[in-house]
Amino acid sequence: MEDEAFTDINGKAIFLDCQSHSSFCREFTVSSPKVSIGKVMVYTCSVWLLAYAVFFFTQNTAVLSSAILITLVGMMLHIHFVKVDHESLLVIGSLGIQVSSSYASGRETTTFIEMSKIKDIVINEAIYMHQIIYYLCVLLKDPSEPNAVSSVVPLFQVRMMHNVLISQMETCFWKASLHLERLYFPGKASNKHIVNHSILFLMNIVSLSFRVQSRG
């Protein structure tokens, strides 16, 4: 597992770790490398040089102090809200999944999605900034309307490349099953085509426990 190099959509390396706690419980952790000191230096230096250039022409010391402030606040905000240290996905059979991401500052956010709300886990394709990417997401359903999708929750903040998603799907999810042509919307007959075709392609990954649940 570890010898395969994974990258995110920007070509940076990420690491994927799969742990099996018990036959019902698995955890996947995606971690990205720490902020390199070089990068911090480059950003800091460029802001300070710019500030010094402005100071040189305006002779206003407020520019320098504000530059220091900007770098400090910027760095803090970056590590607190942007820079994700690692994210983990805890799948507990018949209970649900827990998604937690911890930021470089130590802040941690955790969401739990209970089994009855999960419709499926799929790879979707979407336009993200100026790129078109694949991403892993959970489809939620409303218990009152079991056939419709009520919302879509993307799973990882670190956008992984497709091959990561697939290898994850194939090697980690135990007994991952690709059942491509499952029909989600038993609506009108005429819809079937369109819906079937569109869904067909969102490669499904549903773990065994999910299926046991749906059978029960």
Partner: peptide
């Protein structure tokens, strides 16, 4: 029918 399915698809394929 299409509009119905379009809205369903929209749920799937909404931009990230």
């Amino acid at each position: 029918g299409f509009h119905a399915s379009a809205s369903v698809l929209a749920a799937y394929m909404m931009p990230y």
